[in-house]
Amino acid sequence: MREIRPETVIFIRNNKNEILLVEKPHLHYGEIYIPLGDLVKDSESTFENVRRNCLTTGLEIADTKLKGLVTEVSKDIQWHLFIYLIEDFKGETTKDVEGHKLQWISIVKLDEIALPQADKVYAPIILSSPDFYEAKYTFDDDMKLVKTESI
């Protein structure tokens, strides 16, 4: 049976049309950029998870929107991603989160930077569509994204 992992994905967009991403190493892709978010912990709501993650950025969050739900299925793990968009916030970001560098990246440059393969699919949709996004993504045994089905 697969390990089930509920996780949040948090896009924070400022008024310069930039989103806040974390620079991290990746097993296959070298340095990549990923949105904030992590495993929803025991007894934590997804909303509380978003608050917790945002606290580490130094930003004061006023409003959050749940914009998508993506189920990712691999050989061993099944992720349920709760994707949030935050556009209403105050304050300045810290330099890093737990040793990872935080960067504001222009949305028009998202194609040029290294994003995880699934994020490359859903990030443009979450950031441009007014509708709620629901989808199922399937990975092969080598963790290559092979299928995306949206509802």
Partner: peptide, 23 residues
């Protein structure tokens, strides 16, 4: 472990009640 930040591994291990230090 090449390609994974030590904090991420430590957090994952923490989920499994395994306490190691990262940093």
């Amino acid at each position: 472990i090449e390609g994974i930040h030590s904090h991420d591994i430590s957090a994952y291990l923490g989920e499994k009640n395994i306490c190691v230090r990262a940093g």
